[in-house]
Amino acid sequence: MNAAGREILAGNTRAAARLMRDLDDEIPAAIRTLKRLYRHTGRAYILGVTGAPGSGKSTLVNRITTHLRKRGKSVGIVAIDPTSPFSGGAILGDRIRMQQHALDEGVFIKSLATRGHLGGLSRSTIDIVNVMDAMGKDVILIETVGVGQDEVEIVKVAHTNLVLVVPGLGDDIQAIKAGILEIADIFVINKSDRDGADKAKREIETMVSMGIFKEGKWKPPVLSAVAATDEGTVELLEAVDRHQEYIYQEGNLLRYRREKARVELVEILKARLIEKAVSDLDAHGLLDPLLTEMAKKRLDPYTISEKVVDHSFAFHLLNGGKPASVKGRGNRR
């Protein structure tokens, strides 16, 4: 364990903050530290909060945090806002609603920009959750960007997913479409003091009841809340407790952990393989000629990709060997 890793395990916020920034900025040395921290992860309970822009995610996260602190839990918050596709800049404003926790040593808030990553999270979110986990945070709240219908990456990262719905958005057909509404472990009808809240609740309940739930399977409850006044937060956390009990049942937890492991691996592989393939092509002086051929329509990207992939993998090197032998992969063309 290096010095930074030791400080993070001891809960040093400054060291953790710097590592998180380095991970977000894809600094190679940060990955080395994270590798060492990885086996100290897996203790935190991860709670996802997602919903449309303005549905009250930050306000709810703030309320949940207050109640968790009353229970004596330490809390990490990862709040994600969108990056401008034009300038690459971002305004990260989720802290505004969480200022009451700004001086609480038991709460660590990290704001992230999507930096072009789709799916509702930043590419670095899993890494940063892992750092908070290693720091010893009991509960980690992930607030996604304001999402539409299809940004469902959170489902694979969090133990329990809260989906916020506000009154007045769409009809019951919206409610049976695929996507975001499928990922909820718990529905929260927020701003339920507004007109149409009962209708929204009924529609979601109807949608849930259309699903087929086998004996012993989790059926998402539909709760009402007004995050702005803290109404319904206690009941919401009780529902989270029940879902946690469900998750922690033998079998469920292992399945969850394997699914999360799969996502982590696939995401990291994706990034690494693309980087490796493109830079290798470039190093062999192949990239520019191939692109020119494509631009002239003499070659197609499907054929090139097939060739690249067929010549890139050497999985037999992983057989029985240590993961380190992956470095030796590369039966080049």
Partner: peptide, 19 residues
């Protein structure tokens, strides 16, 4: 600053120096 490519963390009103 956002338009200049900066990631701006906006913390809102009534902040103490400690916050």
């Amino acid at each position: 600053l956002r338009d200049a490519g900066v990631e701006v963390i906006y913390t809102g009103l009534h902040q103490t120096p400690e916050m």
